[in-house]
Amino acid sequence: MERETISPLEPKLFGKWDYDGVEIRDPSLKKYICLKPVWTPYTAGRHEKRRFGKAEVPIVERLINKLMRPGRNMGKKAKLYSVVERAFDLIYLMTGQNPLQVLVRAIENSAPREETTRIMYGGIVYHVAVDVSPQRRVDLALRFLTEGARMKAFKSQKPLEETLAEEIVAAANDDPKSYAIQKKEEIERIALSSR
């Protein structure tokens, strides 16, 4: 079997997926979804010391990091790297599109625009609707996508990569059955009622 040669001038994610042509439609999220071309999405925490440094971390690495929650996969970055790689292959088979574009669309669709915060006046707590910052929108979207995938894979026959691919594709299509879309709509509904 002949190995495909890859040009060192144009890095592709996992050696397969091109960064060219991936567009972010939401202008507020443009600065916080990093699509800088890299071979391997691994920065080893170089962003930790700078304010808003995680905006420069590749979005795929942030997805991998969100999958490393306390429990079965805590600290197993190499394992989750291969899980995300297989999930991207499944996304390509399901949609026929670049998985990076599908992931960006899923983040845009599942990022809440409004939520509530607690304000205290004289010992009484009020919930007040506030706009969500773009950085937090990306964080919440990634959390909802990975939470939904982990919950579907837990005590199930389906592997994590399959549930992750299904969750990302469902969120990209704005499917109301997606866990991420349900959580976003719930947060926005609560914020609307507390205006």
Rank of each mutant, 00 (worst) to 15 (best):
K158T: 01
K177S: 15
R86S: 08
I64D: 01
G15P: 06
I107C: 07
P99T: 07
A106Y: 03
K12Q: 12
P134H: 10
V38A: 07
L80A: 02
D89F: 12
N173Q: 14
E23R: 14
K177H: 11
E147N: 12
E108W: 06
K155Q: 11
H127F: 12
E186N: 06
R118G: 03
I107P: 00
K77A: 06
Q101D: 03
A165L: 08
D26Y: 09
P8W: 04
N173L: 15
S82T: 12
L145R: 08
Q135I: 14
E167Q: 12
L142R: 00
E2H: 12
F154S: 12
P176M: 12
I190V: 14
A165K: 02
F144Q: 00
A149L: 07
P112G: 06
S194D: 04
Q157Y: 07
E4R: 11
R143F: 13
E114T: 12
R62P: 01
K54W: 08
R143A: 11
K49Y: 08
V132I: 15
N98R: 10
Q157M: 07
I124E: 13
E147T: 13
V104Q: 04
A141K: 01
P58E: 09
A106T: 02
D89P: 00
G53N: 09
R51S: 10
G148L: 08
Q101S: 14
L90Q: 05
V83F: 03
D174G: 07
R105E: 15
D139Q: 11
Y92E: 05
G45R: 13
L103V: 05
K183C: 06
G123I: 11
L35K: 08
D18W: 06
N173V: 00
A106W: 02
A170H: 04
P41V: 09
P159Y: 01
S110V: 07
E186I: 05
L103Y: 11
E166H: 06
E23H: 09
K152R: 15
D131R: 15
S28Y: 06
I124C: 01
L93I: 04
Q101H: 10
E147F: 02
L29H: 07
Y126E: 14
D89G: 04
L164I: 09
R25T: 09
A170G: 00
N98C: 09
P112F: 04
T5V: 14
A149G: 05
R136M: 10
M74S: 13
